[in-house]
Design a binder for these strands. Structure first.
Length: 256
DNA sequence: CGTAATACG
């Protein structure tokens, strides 16, 4: 069975719905879709989503209004669904969906942005470390572990348009990049780079500078998989043709 | 500049 998994930071689901979200999902038909930055509270879940009646939908909302939030749309019934790492400080911002299936476990994560101040950068780094612990715990199950989402860090100079200028910007700091180095060393694989070594493959473009038409972007959105699972990944890619957010969707095809 | 509520990305 071949499954199509998507990750997409929608930058406000209600805004994305006004930009064709439903039509895109109906056309592309991912089997499992993780979204980030829903910016919803429980009572704000849009009714139009009922038209996507082939999906079960799970949510994790932030305690803070209009902020963060993640959602999982799935055609397959998961064995379990969780919204946290087991730590209130990481679980209260609606950043975590973990869905376990028979053959694999899917993490849909909206990693923190570290640009506001040092406290948030520190939070991002601690969130990274705790996430890796949970990834490694789940790895002991022997299942394929897929970690998708907005990681908020470009790994290598090839992963952003202006690496030199951004060496001191959160999102491309050495200490943030070092965590991606670490997971790679521990046997986790960036599925997109595994298949595609080409430059200019970005997933986010700033609205402020109208960066997208000029492709001045960053690759912040990923699917990582444990090396034991890579043989099941038949394809990985980026859908730069799809609009509706300042991020574009990324995907993998999983054969199980 | 954009989203959703006055801050954050």
């Amino acid at each position: 069975m071949k499954l199509l998994l998507w990750s997409w930071n929608v930058n406000g689901l209600r805004a994305a719905l006004n930009k064709g979200f439903i039509e895109i999902i109906q056309k592309e038909q991912p089997d499992i879709l993780g979204i980030q930055e829903t910016k919803l509270q429980e009572h704000q879940i849009p009714e139009e989503l009922n038209t996507l009646n082939e999906y079960l939908i799970y949510w994790s909302h932030s305690l803070r209004k209009g902020y963060s939030g993640t959602g999982l749309f799935t055609k397959l019934l998961p064995l379990s669904f969780s919204t946290g790492f087991g730590n209130p400080e990481f679980d209260n911002e609606g950043r975590i969906n973990i869905a376990e299936y028979t053959e694999f476990i899917f993490f849909n994560i909206y990693f923190p942005n570290g640009q506001k101040d040092d406290e948030r950068l520190n939070y991002k780094l601690r969130f990274y470390d705790r996430c890796l612990e949970v990834m490694e715990e789940k790895r002991t199950s022997g299942k394929i572990i897929l970690v998708g989402g907005d990681f908020n860090t470009a790994h290598h100079p090839i992963d952003l348009a202006n690496p030199k200028e951004n060496e001191k910007t959160s999102g491309f700091l050495p200490i943030e990049r070092a965590w991606l180095d670490k997971i790679a060393e521990m046997g986790w694989i960036d599925t997109f780079r595994y298949f595609d070594k080409s430059p200019e493959q970005y997933t986010w473009w700033s609205y402020r500078t109208k960066a997208r038409p000029r492709n001045v972007g960053w690759r912040l959105d990923y699917f990582w998989v444990n090396k034991e699972g890579i043989e099941h990944i038949k394809k990985a890619g980026i859908r730069q043709d799809i609009e509706g957010s300042d991020h574009c969707p990324v995907f993998v095809e999983l054969e199980i």
